[in-house]
Simulated assay, not measured.
Amino acid sequence: MHPEWPVLIAVHAVAAAYSILFGAFQLLRRTKGGAVHRVIGRIWVAGMYIVILTSFGIRTLNGGFTWLHALSVFTFFTVSIGLWAARTGRIPAHRSYLTGSYFGILGAFVGVVAVPDRRIPQMAVNDLPGLVVWVACILLTAGFAVAGTALLRPARKPAEPAAADVL
Rank of each mutant, 00 (worst) to 15 (best):
H94V: 00
L8T: 11
F144P: 04
L98A: 04
L28F: 12
A24P: 06
A15I: 00
G47L: 04
R118H: 08
S101M: 02
A85I: 08
P92E: 06
V135F: 09
W5Y: 08
V110E: 00
T31D: 15
P121Q: 04
D117V: 13
L151G: 05
L61A: 13
H2Y: 07
W44S: 01
V113Y: 01
G63W: 11
F144A: 15
V73T: 06
A17L: 12
M123S: 13
L68R: 06
R118S: 03
G111S: 02
G107L: 14
I50A: 09
R90L: 10
S72D: 03
V45F: 09
V73A: 14
R59T: 06
Y97K: 02
A85R: 02
S72Y: 05
W5A: 05
A35I: 13
L128S: 13
I50H: 01
V115L: 04
L98R: 08
R153P: 02
V36Q: 09
T99E: 07
T99P: 02
T78A: 06
W84F: 14
G104Q: 03
V79F: 03
A142F: 15
G82A: 03
I58P: 00
R156N: 11
R90H: 12
F74Y: 07
T88A: 10
R153S: 09
G47W: 12
H94R: 06
L83K: 10
N62I: 10
P116R: 12
W84L: 15
G130P: 01
G33C: 01
G63M: 05
I43Q: 04
G148Q: 09
W44G: 00
A114V: 02
S19W: 12
H37S: 05
A164H: 15
Y18K: 00
I58D: 09
R95M: 03
A147I: 10
L21E: 00
W5V: 03
Y49M: 14
L61C: 01
P161I: 04
P3M: 02
M123Y: 02
G63A: 04
I91T: 14
V113M: 06
G64C: 10
A145Y: 15
T75W: 14
T75N: 14
F74Q: 02
R38S: 07
L27I: 14
T54Y: 11
L21M: 07
A124W: 05
T31G: 13
R30M: 11
T31Y: 08
A86Q: 10
Y97F: 15
T54G: 02
V79Y: 03
V166Y: 03
S19L: 11
I105Q: 00
Y102V: 13
V133I: 14
I81H: 13
S55L: 06
G143V: 03
T60I: 11
K32M: 06
I9N: 07
L68E: 12
R42A: 11
A142H: 10
A124I: 00
W84C: 06
V110H: 01
P92Q: 06
S80R: 07
T75V: 09
R153L: 13
G104N: 07
G34Y: 14
V166L: 15
R118P: 01
L21A: 04
A108T: 00
I120S: 05
P6A: 03
V51R: 08
I50N: 04
L152V: 01
H37T: 10
T78Q: 05
